[in-house]
Design a binder for these strands. Structure first.
Lengths: 186, 186
DNA sequence: CTCGTAGTGAGACTATTTGTCTCACATTGA
DNA sequence: TCAATGTGAGACAAATAGTCTCACTACGAG
């Protein structure tokens, strides 16, 4: 098995270029654009991915897998909910462009990688927080999870924030809300 | 000006079908699909919209305009921030599929209809709340606005909630956050 | 009621993009 | 140095975008 280092690099270059290109130009970017961005011939893209849809799916699948691993490594279920949410948001934001493509495309994927790899752990985290009485029970956990994912995708796509600022803002907005805590009430 | 009632109907049918088709099938749905869904010939679509991109833009532009008018009619700037946010969320949710297309496509539009018609009023609302000391000042208003839009788009796309439930959940999550209010603290 | 016209449906046609295939060339490893 | 593996380039077929023409339908004026 000789040339596998090259194939590794090429595959990586294509997937990275695809994530960037689809994030910047939108869903209708051409595979010629992706190939050019990756610095390879268009035919080479088809040597690695049988068609456009599968390339998109692979970008999304890898992003989902990568985020999942970050979540596991971050041990989100072994810390407080607040800290767990912070680390989850950090995992999403660190994934960057791949996460944006994932959030945008996940409804059109073959198998629902997103739900198993990200949705489920996120719901588990929120659920345990709910059991501990720290996460409010009047909103369904899956709605909270969707809200968080939507917030991250929206801010990543349309706000020019640095990673640390993005994480801090999203964490605070999601956990504590936009209102100033009403300290004097009740 | 004789047949304009017909053209009105046809235009409406195409735009509605386009919003639904692009929301359900994603960005790469075919114009033949849209035409079939609208019950017109494919050529007729091109009689009303010069190309695919402009059709998408028109769906988004109309959604933006419609939401803007809902915001104005709702007088979001004449009530409390909490009520204003509630009405804004209701405006987004009521727009439905058009809003989903708008949120997804707005980065790739010619002119930024979204920011002027929706982003600006939303930021004004949050800003006035901030001046009144009710909206937290440690998160930039445009980040809060993006968060809210992302939340709505995410929940509308991936949660099977009824309109009233969706509005209530999003309102509560955005304003008060996911945490149980720490009533006993401090 | 009939006719002229505005507007649609259907389909042929071109351009662009997707996807397939072949062949010459470069690079790696023995 | 040489053989094998993998890429670049470009020709090709299939699908979709976009253009155009023509026959037909239905509305509205008389």
């Amino acid at each position: 098995m000789p040339r596998q280092a090259l194939q590794q690099r090429v595959s990586e270059a294509i997937l990275t270029a695809a994530a960037r290109t689809f994030t910047v130009q939108g869903e209708r970017a051409t595979l010629a654009d992706v190939a050019a961005a990756a610095g390879v011939a268009r035919a080479t893209v088809y040597r690695y991915f049988p068609n456009r849809r599968r390339l998109l799916e692979e970008v999304a699948r890898r992003a989902a897998q990568s985020v999942h691993e970050r979540l596991v490594r971050a041990r989100v279920d072994e810390v407080s909910v607040e800290e767990g949410v912070t680390r989850a948001v950090r995992a999403f934001v660190d994934e960057g462009e791949g996460f944006v493509v994932l959030a945008r495309e996940r409804g059109h994927l073959e198998s629902d990688e997103f739900d198993g790899l990200i949705g489920a752990p996120l719901r588990r985290l929120l659920d345990s927080g709910r059991s501990a009485g720290r996460i409010r029970a009047d909103i369904a956990p899956d709605v909270l999870a969707e809200s968080l994912v939507g917030m991250v995708a929206g801010v990543l796509t349309h706000s020019p924030l640095g990673r640390d600022d993005a994480v801090a803002s999203i964490r605070a907005a999601f956990l504590e809300g936009a209102l100033v805590p009403a300290r004097t009430e009740r």
